[in-house]
Design a protein around this nucleic acid. Structure first.
Lengths: 245, 245
DNA sequence: GGGGAGAGATGCCGC
DNA sequence: GCGGCATTTCTCCCC
């Protein structure tokens, strides 16, 4: 694609705040939160309608370079190629993309205000336990969700049948050191705030690393195996079971 | 764009493992690590050469839906629209994109094996301190970098002038509770392993939240203000460049 | 492949 | 805006 054609179309799309997608052989320099250099190669670059920009390699889940909303873009022709300069003054960041060849170009104005509806999160786990605490332990009663302390937010507070206060920390995936540290911090804080000593700690998670479990039991806490609620997967599985042979 | 044209081009591009970009009015269902539903709207969808897929809204830094490398894609015409089904069997994930309208379509085979060169990381901070520990404290001597314990990896071990062992944890940005917890875990572990008690903890970071600093001093540790190497210098330089425009 | 931790993390919600 | 924290975190390194 000719540079001049590209420049015209690009500038027009930018003015109209359209979603821009193009392929380019380019090199990239970034400076801001850190500094990066990416040697010449072929990438797909997108500029969204909020002016955020991403540089994608032909593989990988994340962009190799990017800038956030509120970035200004300008394009000019230099002897060594086309220079796309992106600046974000408030964030103190800039990125220079030197374009050697344009592979394709597309622009489109799209409209989408929808948010993702998501289930199976840690919050869902917490809700599930709050509404039915006996899945954790017989005789457990819910006291409070999302208790705020100066040392952080506690997922769940309960009372056990011996009238101990129980701090529950939920993790939706395998728990590690930091989960245990978090639980410890909350238990210590609750003891301090309430001025009591009969406070237990429970880590509710589908699994835990061996080392973290050792640390957990060293602190006198307990691991309870709980899966995050996933309704669709169960539905799909039952449907599959029904349809399969 | 006509469905039939799109289907032909899409399947051909998929077979050739090309980088696919298209705009579509669609709704999205995902099930795997969690479960999501995204109502009908207009998005830009990319499928990379490693078969990973991303669904992008017209705003935002991250894809609203995505799947990783090693995903199989298939397209078929249904009464309610075009269905793009993506499966990743090893990861137990699937995504259904129901396409109501195709806005544009592009495919390209691109080649890029380059990696990002990055500076200004926590590792760079650690190296800087290791090579010149007196920037932390007078008389400090480096002992070891990246000490591995069963309770995690310690950034830096030093000896102070009173022959105390000093554990240093570096943070590139503002340190929080988890940084303090991490430091505490390492200090306790070092005391345990070495069977000594004169072990100090230092958090080397440009800044720290007020609550985290309180916790830090409660534990008897110390905050030392350190900037990641060359970061400020470069930032200032870029700001200067910016203001010159 | 799992464990552990950083990341130019990002995003969300609360104050 | 900062704080605290989850995330379909992602990515890297090392065992």
């Amino acid at each position: 694609m000719l540079f001049n054609t590209f420049i015209d179309q690009f500038k027009q799309a930018l003015n109209r705040k359209e979603f821009i997608v193009f392929g380019a052989e380019c090199k990239v320099n970034y400076s801001g939160r850190a500094e990066t250099y990416l040697a010449k190669g072929q990438r797909v670059i997108i500029i969204k309608q909020d002016s955020s920009i991403q540089v994608h390699q032909p593989f990988g889940n994340t962009p190799i370079n990017y800038m956030k909303e509120g970035t200004d873009h300008s394009l000019r022709l230099l002897p060594e190629g086309l220079l796309l300069s992106s600046y974000n003054i408030p964030l103190g960041e800039f990125m220079d993309i030197t374009i050697h060849k344009v592979l394709f170009f597309n622009k489109v104005k799209i409209d989408d205000g929808h948010k993702l509806q998501l289930t199976g999160t840690e919050q869902d786990m917490s809700n599930m336990i709050y509404e039915n605490p006996s899945i954790i332990e017989k005789g457990l009663k819910s006291v409070k969700q999302e208790e705020q302390t100066q040392y952080g937010f506690i997922d769940l507070l309960c009372n056990d049948e011996n009238n101990n206060l129980v701090v529950i920390e939920c993790k939706r995936f395998k728990a590690d050191f930091s989960a245990v540290s978090q639980l410890r911090r909350y238990v210590e804080r609750v003891k301090e705030i309430k001025g009591i000593n009969n406070v237990r700690g429970i880590l509710a998670t589908p699994s835990i690393t061996a080392n973290a479990e050792k640390m957990l039991t060293d602190y006198g806490f307990k691991f309870v195996k709980i899966e995050p609620p996933k309704y669709m997967e169960k539905l799909k599985r039952s449907q599959k079971n029904l349809s399969e042979f």
